[in-house]
Nucleic acid binder design. Structure first.
Lengths: 187, 187
DNA sequence: GCTATATAAATACGATCGTATTGAAATGGA
DNA sequence: TCCATTTCAATACGATCGTATTTATATAGC
């Protein structure tokens, strides 16, 4: 019933895949290059992930889950929409260079095929879904969220270069804008 | 000295290229697919742009110039850093769906090769270069700029979906944050 | 120890990639 | 008219793509 024990570490392969996208761009991610980077054979990659689309899906899922865990951790007990957004901002604020590279890699991989976008759209939409855009405080939170994502994406893509102090100051402003300190939304 | 008159409209080819990236993602952009979409031959594409890298460079350049023109137009006479940022925000605010698709296509194409990123980094850096992050008003302008880019990118990538009213309200807030009305930075 | 099964490697295959080369068509000048 | 030149099409080429198929290896149950 049980066959040969698995010798390929899926996570390590996904790490290698991220590394490839970080260094060579999404276009450089191929089964062959991935196999070489992960120290296994092309067939091993195929066996683990089947198709390339599955591979990319696995990359994005793992990344999304990891970030989501950090967000909820930062959000703490209060899981209201605004608190989640502050958690998201705090998670972005605390992310280091490696995390930025990873995120950029995931984004580029994500944008490869429009099909992949749809599932991620839901993830983003839910962030903003709980906010009432008619309410000024909520709109400020949305603005802060967008600023955080803008900073995060541009930084991840390597399009802006901010010092650690500037980064911290900006996210401090964003958190303030998102209502840090005054937790309750006025409804 | 003068040969066969040109029959290929470079701009139309670039339009087709954008269309391909919009519909099929950056991975779908090939000389062959582009030739088919533009109604010319693969060789024609090669003759016009030489290499694929040149093609992408041309796409990005055209896009950058077009957007830059709108920014300066929106900024008007005042070309101070904050005014430029407000011009940028206004240009983003007024961009329609087609413009979003185009921008998304450019971004995805841009992220294909890390080499392309470098030249664009300068473009973004200059936007923030004139701002003094120690100054609160300037930092607010930076935050507004990042929020605008975040909204723009997420919208372009199809990751968020905002009504026109929400879009307008958010950018109105951003422009206010960037100091609309009080043009002079306190130095 | 044989077999079934899970895992991974080996190999092969058609398709498509980007580009190089060659040839044809259309212009201006001599 | 003949040639030089520009512009594009036709064709070909090696490389690499993703995947299918086949083969080898290591475990568990009988």
């Amino acid at each position: 019933m049980a066959g040969r024990p698995r010798s390929i570490d899926r996570d390590k392969v996904l790490d290698a895949a991220e590394g490839i996208v970080v260094e060579s761009g999404a276009a450089g991610l191929s089964f062959e290059a991935l196999a070489r980077a992960a120290g296994i054979t092309k067939s091993g990659v195929q066996y683990c992930f089947g198709t390339k689309e599955n591979l990319i899906r696995a990359m994005i899922e793992r990344w999304g889950n990891g970030f989501e865990a950090e967000v909820t951790a930062h959000a703490g007990a209060d899981q209201s929409p605004r608190a989640i957004i502050r958690g998201h901002l705090a998670a972005s604020r605390d992310s280091d260079e490696a995390e930025h590279s990873r995120s950029a890699a995931m984004m580029t991989a994500l944008l490869q095929s429009p099909d992949q976008v749809a599932s991620t759209r839901i993830w983003y939409t839910q962030r903003l879904a709980g906010l009432d855009m008619e309410n000024e405080a909520d709109r400020k939170a949305a603005l802060a969220f967008l600023a955080g994502e803008g900073a995060f994406l541009l930084k991840a893509f390597g399009l802006i270069d901010l010092t650690q102090a500037q980064w911290a100051a900006l996210f401090s402003d964003m958190l303030a804008l998102a209502g840090e300190g005054k937790d309750k939304a006025p409804l």
